[in-house]
Every structure is written in C-alpha cells, then in structure tokens.
C-alpha cells in the first residue's frame, strides 16, 4: 500500500527515534570501551572515540577470571538449550498433536509457572540443592535454566506444531511409521525454525540469568558472566573502562549467535505469541 508523505515523515521519525533509543546506548558503551580513561570520564563526551586503546580489555582478561566466566556461561547456556529442546519438543508434540487424558489440565498447569514470582522458589530451592549437593555446581544451574525455559518453550512450539497439516502425519501412519519415527523423521525436520527459536530462547535465558546463579554459585571458578561481572562491579573502585570492556565482551556472543539465527528466533517468537 502507498503511504502519504505525512505518514512517511512520521515513519521516518519513529524509526530514527527507535534507532537512537536502542542503538545509541550500545554504541556509546562499545566505542567508549576503546577510549583512554581520561576520555571516558571527560565532561564533554565524544560520539566517536578520539583515542584508541585495548588496555581495558587487557586489564579485564588479566585481572579477573573473565575467560572462565565466559567459558562457564557458554557451557551452561549450550547444555541448557540442548536439554530444554530434548524435553520441550516431545512434550509439545504430545500436548499439541496427541490425545491423552488430562492434557488440557497439564498444559494449563505448566503455563501457571509464569504466574508466581520466581524469587518465591529461590529460598526452598536453595535448601533442596544443599541437600542434593547441587550448590556451587554448573549442573545445578542447568537444572534451573531448563526449568525456567521450559514453559515458554513448550508454548512457543505450539504454533509450529499446530501449523503442520494433520494429513502429513496420517500419510506417515499409512506408510507404517511409528510415533517415534514420525516425530524424528517427519515432525522435527518440519519444525526446524521452531526448534531454532526455542534453542535460542533457552540459550539467551541461561546467558542472562543472574538471580539464581548469584545465590547458588559460591566459588569464583564456577561463576557465569552475569554473576562474575557483577562481582567485578563491586570488587574494585569503579573502573568504568574495564566495566565497559566487560559489557562489550558479554554482548559479543549473543550478537554473534543472533546474527546467525536471529531471524528464526524473532519469527518463532512472533509466531508463537498470542495465538
């Protein structure tokens, strides 16, 4: 449809506003992480760095366990994403493509998980993890992340499964495929975009998780980026250069991941929503 020129101006203004609102903070932070310390705290801020240095990154990598945090985060997020998929895909298949007693009730109960503050379970969970020896382990973090990613993941897969015509499944039944074969050979290949978005969702959720990790992880060597990073905040006198370098560094993996598969994720998010 054609737009009037007034609408075009309005659209251009909104887009410019959104660009500033979303991108400018990132630009300021990333560009400033390469500035000399004096320029960072200068009273007259510069849009484009006048100086260039890698000293903040060097300091970050040498004076903190940042590489360890990064590695821990990658391990926890990747494993969490894989396990979330392993649990969510069969569950979603059963919820949206199979008949069994109690289906509706179970599905609604799962969605209820959104309706209470996650901080509620933090206290009893800590006690439980102490008994199970899961405190201060990456395994414990994976369990937490998977649990919190599951309800939304199942919900997200709904529209992907619902979008497949039932005849394709019936054709496979007529071809003599068992339910497991149908899931593996027919359904999963057809919902690859959905699987990608759920995987990314679980990864990002795990990558950004702070509260539970901060309580459940004790030793520095087990910390993930968010918690290790927040440790750096308080540990030193505020060294903005190093914090900005750390922030730029922590953004990097998600940006890389997102430039590869972001389109699918957003597609999956908008597909799964509200339907």
């Amino acid at each position: 449809m054609r737009r009037s020129w007034q609408m075009n101006i309005l659209l251009a203004l909104s887009l410019a506003f959104l660009c500033l609102l979303i991108l400018l903070p990132f630009w300021w932070v990333v560009s400033s992480s390469f500035k000399e310390p004096q320029e960072i705290i200068s009273r007259s801020p510069t849009m484009v760095p006048h100086s260039f240095t890698l000293q903040h990154f060097q300091k970050l990598l040498s004076s903190s366990a940042y590489p360890t945090y990064m590695l821990n985060s990658l391990i926890v997020s990747t494993i969490s994403a894989i396990i979330t998929l392993m649990l969510a895909v069969p569950a979603a298949y059963a919820f949206f493509r199979m008949h069994f007693p109690g289906r509706e009730v179970m599905y609604r109960t799962i969605l209820l998980a959104y309706a209470f503050p996650s901080i509620v379970v933090l206290i009893p969970l800590f006690g439980m993890f102490v008994k199970l020896g899961l405190v201060d382990t990456l395994t414990g973090l994976v369990i937490i992340n998977v649990t919190f990613a599951l309800p939304f993941s199942i919900w997200m897969l709904r529209s992907f499964f619902a979008g497949l015509p039932k005849e394709i499944e019936e054709a496979a039944v007529m071809d003599g495929a068992s339910t497991l074969v149908i899931l593996r050979r027919v359904m999963i290949p057809l919902i690859t975009p959905g699987i990608a978005s759920v995987g990314i969702f679980a990864f990002i959720l795990s990558w950004t998780e702070y509260v539970f990790t901060s309580v459940l992880i004790v030793s520095d060597a087990k910390r993930t980026v968010p918690v290790g990073f927040s440790g750096i905040i308080g540990q030193y006198q505020i060294d903005w250069g190093m914090l900005l370098a750390g922030a730029s560094f922590a953004v990097l993996p998600v940006i890389i991941l997102f430039s590869l598969v972001g389109r699918w994720f957003v597609g999956g998010l908008t597909e799964g929503a509200v339907k």
Partner: peptide, 8 residues
Amino acid sequence: PTVVTVII
C-alpha cells in the same frame, strides 16, 4: 544480560 544493561 541484565548485568550488561545495568552497566550500560
């Protein structure tokens, strides 16, 4: 990560 949001 929210921690990065916070720093920013």
